[in-house]
Design a protein around this nucleic acid. Sequence first.
DNA 1: ACGTCGATCTCCT
DNA 2: GGAGATCGACGTA
Length: 204
Amino acid sequence: MNPWFDSKKTTEEIAQELLGMLVVKETDAGIVSGWIVETEAYLGEIDQAAHSYKLKKTPRLNSMYQEAGTIYIYSMHTHHMLNLVVQAKGIPEAVLIRGIEPFEGLAIMEERRAQTGFAVTDGPGKLTKAMGIDKSDDGSSILVPPLIISQKERRYPQEVELSKRIGIPNKGKWTEAFLRYSVKGNPYVSKLKGTIEPDYGWEK
DNA sequence: ACGTCGATCTCCT
DNA sequence: GGAGATCGACGTA
């Protein structure tokens, strides 16, 4: 049972509400966690940009057709991307996590990335590498360790910014749709335009 | 069995 | 802002 998945919220609403929630991954190397600062909604059957467009079914997409809270990992160009399935079983709509602000385990993340600063987690492929998220997390539930969203604490954006999804060319109206959500002024938002807020865009 | 193509990242200019 | 890296999944045969 889940406070946001079991309600009748749209995938767009859930994508927005995920901003400020805490993603936690436990590995032998230690615990790492981070606040979600950027998401994208993928609307399944009708969405030309979604992998599950027209209810396509392949072995790789199996997780997309499972119940809300299932983790869907998509790998491409040697990178892994973290998605959350957010609707009832059989409705393949998902939210892509594109950026997180490190909270716990920063040193581990820096080591995995061989980077420091915002570049550690300011992109979908970067944050999975930093947090040690890979194919082994695919199909698992976000309510069960080792990869969870904390139900205990969260933050809230001062302002949510909407924009077009990244890397979706030639998909007609779906290229133009404002289905990307980010914490305005947070430096861990990928390809950030505009200025960094002193408090990184969070409510106090 | 093979050709194509990314929901990306890095490095360079 | 753009090219190249790089590889597994998928479609076609």
